[in-house]
């Protein structure tokens, strides 16, 4: 990294142009990224229909209208008081945390074994595991719904946890396998030499992998929390989660935008800090461990 400073280019006109354009590009991109989120938060605090009006086309000064409203938390209040969002929030929490815990507990056990044991057909087993994670959600939903209906799991939290586990468990196994592979076997071996049993030896490396396992637990929560398709089809009825409930607020007529945006904020708000918390593991998590930072 230090050697980067050595590289200096002459001030060619092209480079000077790039120097001017770079901040502009960054500024435009920043606005493009954050503006929709900003509008969502603002709209969630608008009540009267007038507040949602947009100016006439081409009336650039009319942008001021966007800020012309009395902020209110009415929509948030109504969502919890009348639309059962407390229940949906609870469902979201239980379903995502439940599936993340199942996935990471079972997943880390399996991942550890797969990292340490060599056997014939291991590659095929691994490919099967990752392929279950890659399957298109809609394609999986149809048979899963049919099976869960016959087991009376549709519309229940255990059913939803199980459904989320179909994508979280293969994710956890695959990513944690790579993680355990980076822990030298010598540590466990030394522990065994010191008289630990095989299981105690496994426990000696737990503190080493704990931060990573924790981060991937958070990612599993994020994936499950943000899911819509399973939540709306497997969870329909008794186990509706926040994304499914938010979508249901959309009516064919007289859409209450303020309310929908408030529901969007409720769904999104907890996930942004969680995502930033595991920032270091985000790239590994989102690329199934193929790319590490």
């Amino acid at each position: 990294m230090a050697s980067r400073e050595i590289i200096r280019y002459d001030n060619s006109p092209l480079l000077r142009l790039a120097k001017i354009l770079t901040p502009i590009f960054l500024a435009v991109y920043l606005v493009w990224t954050l503006l929709p989120l900003f509008i969502m938060v603002m709209a969630s605090m608008k009540d009267l229909l007038d507040a949602f009006d947009t100016p006439d086309a081409g009336d650039w000064g009319g942008v001021a209208m966007f800020f012309d409203f009395t902020p209110t938390l009415k929509h948030y209040y109504v969502l919890f008081a009348e639309n059962n969002f407390g229940v949906y929030l609870f469902n979201s929490l239980v379903a995502s945390l439940g599936s993340a815990l199942v996935a990471v507990t079972l997943g880390s056990m399996a991942a550890y074994s797969l990292a340490r044991m060599e056997f014939r057909g291991k590659k095929d087993l691994l490919f099967w595991i990752i392929s279950t994670r890659m399957a298109p959600m809609v394609a999986v939903t149809v048979p899963l719904y049919a099976i869960f209906r016959s087991l009376d799991l549709v519309g229940t939290l255990p059913g939803l946890i199980l459904a989320f586990t179909t994508f979280n468990l293969p994710f956890a196994i695959w990513i944690l396998k790579g993680f355990f592979e980076n822990v030298p076997y010598a540590i466990e071996e030394a522990a065994q030499v010191d008289g630990c049993t095989r299981f105690q030896a496994f426990l000696t490396i737990v503190p080493l992998v704990a931060p990573g396992v924790g981060a991937f637990l958070v990612l599993c929560i994020l994936f499950a929390w943000n899911d819509f398709l399973f939540a709306t089809i497997i969870g329909s009825g008794g186990a509706k989660t926040l994304p499914a409930a938010t979508k249901e607020l959309v009516q064919p007529q007289n859409i209450d935008w303020g309310k929908i945006m408030a529901a969007g904020v409720i769904t999104t708000a907890p996930m942004i800090p969680l995502g930033l918390l595991v920032r270091k593991y985000l790239v590994a998590g989102l690329t199934m461990g193929a790319v590490r930072e």
């Binding site: 990224t33 989120l37 969502m40 899911d227 819509f228 938010t246 935008w257 929908i260 769904t267 995502g275």
Partner: peptide
């Protein structure tokens, strides 16, 4: 920059729908 990735895709859809 990475904030939009945390948004539930269905919420992102509804936000842009608005």
């Amino acid at each position: 920059f990475l904030m939009p990735m945390m948004v539930s895709p269905v919420v992102a859809g509804l936000l842009w729908f608005y």
